[in-house]
Design a protein around this nucleic acid. Structure first.
Lengths: 156, 156
DNA sequence: TTTAAATTGAGACCCGATATCAATTGGATG
DNA sequence: CATCCAATTGATATCGGGTCTCAATTTAAA
């Protein structure tokens, strides 16, 4: 059974109807490269309305079929989810994204819960850096653009 | 010297001109409650143009005078920064935000760097949960809205 | 086959944010 | 203090991701 069929099955189980549009969007998503925008999906799934693409993406997000990555330029991209909980390591130069799941945040959240009385539900961790390849090429002066968008993402 | 004057000084040092508009925006920001939107600031700093408010906020973001919090409903809010690196613990019910800085992410990023060859620059961690107060009141059924927006934030 | 409920798509609309550009102003300089 | 110009402003247009509306269509259960 293809990955796509597997998702279709999950859609059905959730009580969603299997429509032509949804199939087309799903196919388009599965055919995307590492990360993409809803716009990319729209172009790849002709004949499906804008609203429907967004609606379908929301469902896929909900089913954890896709996840979102905050890119270094502040734009939100999507990617097909690896199974389970994970985080992203984004290269600020070339934009490649690595997944990682070894997250010691567990102990952190446990401590936090203890200290604050919160019941921790989930967390979102994105890590930014420069990949090995980009580190080896000339450490070129950051462009004005890069600096601007870096500020757009900074949240510490 | 007031907090505001201190920021003004930093603006000058950075080569920014001290204008009436910037003063008004800064005053408005400093007068905000725990977290706020650019719109709030706009209302609080009459006579300053929309674009200028946004521009000033970007500078303040850059100076780390304010930081951004991703609220549970997917909206981006601002808050006056506590000094230095920190993260947010956001209550998904009432929206209150706690800062915390004890972040063991250091060891995680060190491991990551080792494993991937990345040079880690920074990270963004937001934690979502339910605060003590909200946990004690009726654990009411989540509204359709709540579920929808929760999906909007989920990125794991 | 019928039928009610879910879904669709075109388009309006929303909202946060940026771009444009002529008019204004801060502040370094003489 | 007066001059002057680059930085800044603000009105307005525009952008981009996303949602809302609603009549028309489609799904799948009976």
């Amino acid at each position: 059974m293809s990955e796509t069929d597997f998702v279709i099955e999950r859609l059905e189980m959730r009580g969603h109807r299997i429509t032509g549009s949804r199939r087309r969007v799903l196919d388009a998503v599965m055919a995307q490269p590492a990360h993409f925008t809803v716009d990319d999906v729209m172009h790849a799934s002709r004949k499906v309305g804008r609203a429907t693409v967004f609606r379908t993406m929301k469902i896929l997000l909900d089913l954890n079929v896709v996840c979102r990555v905050m890119l270094d330029d502040g734009t939100l991209h999507y990617r097909v989810s690896t199974r389970g909980h994970h985080h992203h390591l984004v290269c600020v130069d070339c934009g490649r994204v690595e997944d990682f799941s070894q997250c010691d945040v567990q102990s952190l959240t446990r401590d936090l819960a203890q200290a604050t009385g919160y019941e921790i539900e989930r967390h979102w961790l994105e890590v930014y850096g420069r990949c090995e390849t980009c580190r080896l090429v000339a450490p070129k002066e950051k462009s004005a653009l890069t600096k601007r968008v870096a500020a757009a993402v900074r949240v510490d």
